[in-house]
Every structure is written in C-alpha cells, then in structure tokens.
C-alpha cells in the first residue's frame, strides 16, 4: 500500500501542477501540452482505480483525438503564437476570490465527509465487457440520445466550418 501512496502522490502532484500551468502559461501551445500532461496523469489514476475502459478511452479519445483537434485548431485559427502578455483578463482578482471561496467550501466538505472513506481492498473489477453491458441495457436510451447528439455535432461542424 505504501507504493500505491507514493505513486498517487507523484501523479497527483504532476496533474495539479500541470493544471495550474495550463491556466497560467502565456503561450497557447504550452497550455495545450500541459493539458496533455493532466490528461495522461488522470489516465494513470484511472488505472489505479481499476477502471480499464475509462483509462483506455482517456488515452484514445482525449489525448489522441481531442488534443490533436485542439492543436489543429490553434494552427487553423492562426492564433498568435509565442509569449502573449494579454492572455489573462483584468478581472483576475475577482476570479481568484470566487475560486478561493468555492475551493474552501468544496474541499472542506469533501475532506469532512470522505477523509476516512477507505477504498475497498478487494474491489469489484469491472472489465470493458461489463461497461458495454451497462451501456446497452440500463443506459440504452441515453446512448441513443448521445449518438443523435454526435450526429448533430458532426453536421454542425461541417456547416460552421464551410467557406461560403
């Protein structure tokens, strides 16, 4: 269990630091690459939580597809690259106050309620097949709705991006 603690601490600090750098760096491409570090660390945490399907899709869909889409977006928009001084708005002290309040309440509540909630040492391990069973039985109607949503997004993207 000690090894698990050390690995959790290592990955969690990488994730938190990279997330912080994503919102503070002054370079858009760097923000995207820090986000990749966050997503990869989360994928590793999903493996530790024995969620193999979620970990795999995290790497395939998020790092493989969404981040490539982001980098293409940066290239296609001819976004200003390099060091940008005005990437952060002037309202940042207000945002910091809101975040501190929200963070204090949220983290106090979570620590208060779950600090001693041990993870089961002998977990029920759900394989990808179990997730598939769940999606195609209990969650069949949401699944159909989501497929219509994807179709709508596809058509919407084509309509929006077309030159006319």
């Amino acid at each position: 269990m000690v090894a698990q603690n050390i690995i959790f601490g290592f990955i969690a600090s990488i994730v938190a630091l990279s997330a912080f750098r994503t919102v503070t760096t002054r370079n858009i491409v760097h923000a995207a690459l820090y986000l990749v570090a966050v997503l990869a660390g989360l994928g590793a945490l999903y493996v530790m939580l024995t969620a193999e399907f979620v970990a795999t899709t995290q790497f395939l869909v998020y790092i493989g597809a969404v981040m490539v889409l982001f980098l293409f977006g940066i290239m296609l928009t001819r976004a200003p690259l390099g060091h940008l001084d005005d990437l952060t708005g002037k309202q940042w002290p207000v945002a910091l106050g809101v975040a501190t309040t929200l963070g204090a309440v949220l983290i106090y509540a979570l620590v208060d309620a779950f600090h001693a909630a041990e993870l089961p040492t002998d977990p029920v391990i759900y394989r990808t097949a179990d997730v598939g069973d769940s999606v195609f039985s209990t969650y069949l109607i949401p699944f159909e709705a989501v497929s219509v949503l994807l179709l709508a997004a596809l058509i919407g993207a084509v309509v929006l991006a077309r030159k006319d």
Partner: peptide, 10 residues
C-alpha cells in the same frame, strides 16, 4: 492509505 477523499479533493 489513499482514501476516496484524496481522489475527490484532486
């Protein structure tokens, strides 16, 4: 040990 709370706080 790592408890649920650590993941939730992260």
């Amino acid at each position: 040990d790592v408890t649920t709370g650590w993941y939730l706080v992260l």
